[in-house]
Design a protein around this nucleic acid. Sequence first.
DNA 1: CGGCATCCGTGACGATACTG
DNA 2: CAGTATCGTCACGGATGCCG
Lengths: 209, 209
Amino acid sequence: MPRSYDQYCAIARALDTVGDRWALLIVRELSAGPRRYTDLHADLPGISTDVLATRLKDLERGDVVTRRRLPGHGSALAYELTDRGRALAPVLAALAAWGTPLLAEPRAVDAVRAHWAAVPLLNLLPVAPAVLEVRLDEGAFHLRLDAAERSFADGPAPDAEARLTLDPASARALITGTATLADVLRAPGSRLEGDGPLVELLAGGALVS
Amino acid sequence: MPRSYDQYCAIARALDTVGDRWALLIVRELSAGPRRYTDLHADLPGISTDVLATRLKDLERGDVVTRRRLPGHGSALAYELTDRGRALAPVLAALAAWGTPLLAEPRAVDAVRAHWAAVPLLNLLPVAPAVLEVRLDEGAFHLRLDAAERSFADGPAPDAEARLTLDPASARALITGTATLADVLRAPGSRLEGDGPLVELLAGGALVS
DNA sequence: CGGCATCCGTGACGATACTG
DNA sequence: CAGTATCGTCACGGATGCCG
């Protein structure tokens, strides 16, 4: 059980649950879908095994995360977000928006994962009843752009009607906010495939925010 | 200088700057206006003096906080938010919204300050070109409800056109989300004074969210 | 006094090794 | 694969002291 601030304040209470080191980054990882312990450890470079185990237990007690045996795969134990955990999406979005100007240049020591671009891209893309697959050098993920369920998940999408392929420079320009999606689509190094209202909307350049 | 996660991710970068223990609570305090070191120490029960000094230095290097001599008062040194610091308001709002269900009952050990209710109330109140003074048992603060500058500050407002007085039960019901503002205004224990469009809007019961 | 710096005990963290 | 055990280090919390 982590230490409490002991303040009658909603912000302090939230930080009692998700304010510890690594906690929100674990939530970020699980926002991409259920993960096993080893996968989490691999995508959180620097976290030690005991801290990961402790955080997962704390987050479970805080009703943010559940342990579950995935159906299909022979009894694979996995962690996933609860409804309360998914309700942290606005917190992650706000942090991502604020942190964007700090991304300017990747440092030599920085780890990179494809799905870390998902939250910034969700902040950037319009609401649309569509699923967009995004392919980067580091891997693929897909975004659900419905107004009701704006989310993302790892890997290619089975039901994507559009696919966006970005080279590293385009991806970086998008994520750092130095280029709009319209800019990137005009330049070489990016490709938008598929059809449907989303593709027409994006290709049409009707992107204000 | 705090430890970095070393990840090329906007969320991780944000947490590199404001993810340390106490950091966001210091930002919360300074959201109510400039504060001196001793005031911060008094309103953050449990923080040690050296941690407060270290965080303030880190936040200064992170362009979140500035040190300044307040004009008027004989060379009183104070800390205040920079523009980047004020840009953290959506993060605090999202955390407050998520933490609201955790507030149910104040615990015996919990500290209480009047202005800690300001962010939840801002999340609750509509956009209006008005300044609302709020009086609680613990003290007073005021909210600026403009679309452009939604903010709050300590103490009574010189230019408030409305005043909302809440007894402890009403304030708790509002802050925990168990009652709407319309509910509270119908019950005894709360009083709304003043005039202008805001008062008419609130008194009229036209409060959906 | 306000604004820290220092010292010290405890607990959290990070790396590695090890176990069911 | 999914953690637990161990250990060194560092951050935190509390008290006290210094210095303008």
